[in-house]
Write a protein that binds this DNA or RNA. Structure first.
Length: 455
RNA sequence: GUGGUUGUAGCUCAGCUGGUUAGAGCGCUGGUUUGUGGCACCAGAGGUCGCCGGUUCGAACCCGGUCUCCCACCCCA
């Protein structure tokens, strides 16, 4: 009988009481915000048919999917010759389900399957774990929660505005002040590639440009060079890279720069309108940063793209999203435009921890512990416990007959502020001794007095 | 997937060029106080030195493999 050492799969975590209290604090702030903006919650299964998931995230994404082995004899459809055909040929024969990789694709599936019951525009939010077979590191987990809010069935830029507003509200509530919401538009990137004479290569352009913050302009030039971008194209890009100005000045500059690209100008106009809406709504542009070189990997974004970065922390982006014109197309429903974004709770948690932003005392707290010496104290305590709970006071009775010292230590460890001591005197006089463990004061009170004291 | 790094008590870590019974702090249990926590003092429990193999008279220490952790790249929340 060997005892095995327990362990957790790579990249997964347990959450203890303190962590849960803090996570719930973040989650509740987000939920409350979504709901205030008129979003409705849905949930979808942890697992989806593999065919729903594959091909939606690019080749790399497919590799990062967790696949679920078929139940029963998963080799029953496999011929010896299949083995030689390689992994991708084998996979559909042994696995038909996978864990969801994000919440957007399951949502698209949901919309298509429920199209007749949904009233468009449909504003939904969804808070559930997703799984990625990534290699874990700081701020990167294999199981983590996403908090998505999406609107489908409208092109209105009010949706983009609301995303900005929700991000600002959540961060303000959580006490995160030093951050920026980077906003850009895919059409601007398309325009950019047209203007520099590399039409249709905005994807590659984005991948390279995206590293600007990390590796600098010099290295980005090298990478563009390696990817076969012409000297002249890179040179033309230069004024964009070095562009440092406020949002309005950037817009003005780009109107000239992108004047030959119809698509680019359209993107510019969209950004401008969003900023305009922000002003009309009566909100400042604080934290909102039009970033011409912001590029996001996901292939399906077609309009606005967002990313939120908290400054002075070692965590990547804590939120991101954008507009997609035809997300449901692959599932047979054309012409449904949507825009959405996602908060990464786990990363927000890490950020708040790093910045020391969690309020004290955020574990779920018992307010009163009832201690006693013997069976009669236990019985008396049980009745008082009932009274306390009816008064809505989080309270507990020490479950075992133990030395009073041990019961006190328990209260101390759990940071319970009040202790009731029930001995023969208290039982006889029908009162209680109430000790405040923070101040150390102790007094004898009637049950009613005690309840009003600890309320 | 590529490269690098780490692993010793519940936790954070010491442990000399390989040399007897592997240490500290914190935590834990008990006591000083059988009606009182935190603080102090005293005592005690707790380790297959990640795992497997090799070198050696002798390995926590050297070598190989493996797993794990963390970091960078890729990509992302």
């Amino acid at each position: 009988m060997s005892v095995q050492k327990p362990s957790l799969p790579k990249g997964t975590r347990d959450f203890g009481p303190v962590q849960m209290a803090r996570r719930n604090y973040i989650l509740n702030t987000i939920k409350e915000t979504f709901s205030l903006f008129g979003f409705q919650q849905i949930e979808t299964p942890a697992m989806e048919n593999l065919s729903t998931l594959t091909g939606k995230y690019g080749d790399e994404g497919d590799q990062l999917l967790f696949k679920i082995l078929n139940s029963g004899d998963f080799l029953k459809n496999v011929e010896p010759s299949d083995l030689e055909k390689g992994t991708s040929a084998m996979l559909p024969k042994v696995s038909e389900k996978g864990l969801r990789y994000d919440l957007t694709v399951p949502f698209a599936r949901y919309v298509v399957m429920n199209r007749n019951d949904i009233t468009f525009p449909f504003k939904r939010y969804q808070i559930q774990p997703v799984w990625r077979a990534d290699r874990p590191q700081r701020g990167r987990y294999r199981e983590f929660y996403q908090c998505d809010a999406d609107v489908v069935g409208t092109d209105s830029l009010v949706c983009e505005l609301e995303i900005l507003l929700m991000i600002k509200r959540v961060f303000s509530k959580l006490g995160i002040t030093d951050y920026s919401i980077k906003i850009n538009n895919r059409k601007i990137l398309t325009g950019l590639s047209e203007v520099i004479g590399e039409k249709g290569r905005e994807g590659e352009l984005c991948v390279a440009i995206d590293k600007l913050d990390k590796i600098g302009w010099e290295k980005v030039q090298e990478e563009l060079n390696q990817r076969g971008f012409g000297e002249r194209s890179i040179e033309l890009l230069s004024p964009i890279i070095t562009l440092k100005a406020d949002n309005h000045k950037k817009l003005d500059f780009l109107k000239g720069f992108l004047s030959s690209s119809e698509t680019g100008l359209k993107g510019l106009q969209e950004i401008q309108e969003v900023i305009q809406l922000l002003e009309t709504f009566g909100e400042t542009q604080d934290h909102v940063d039009f970033d011409v070189v912001l590029a996001r990997g996901l292939t399906y974004y077609t309009g606005a793209i967002f990313e939120v970065k908290v400054h002075n922390v070692s965590i990547g982006s804590v939120s991101g999203g954008g507009r997609y014109d035809n997300l449901t197309g692959v599932f047979g429903l054309e012409g449904v435009s949507g825009v959405g974004f996602s908060f990464g709770v786990d990363r927000i948690y890490d950020v708040m921890e790093e910045l020391g932003l969690f309020p004290e005392q955020h574990a779920d707290q018992t307010k009163v512990l009832i201690t006693y010496f013997d069976k009669s104290g236990f019985d008396y305590g049980l009745r008082i416990l009932n009274r306390l709970r009816q008064a809505g006071i989080a309270s507990e009775l020490y479950p075992d007959e133990a030395k009073i010292k041990k019961q006190f230590t328990y209260a101390d460890k759990k940071q319970i502020p009040y202790v009731l001591i029930l001995g023969d005197n208290e039982i006889k006089e029908k009162n209680v001794s109430l000790k405040n463990l923070i101040s150390g004061e102790q007094e004898v009170l009637s049950v009613e007095e005690m309840i009003s004291r600890v309320c």
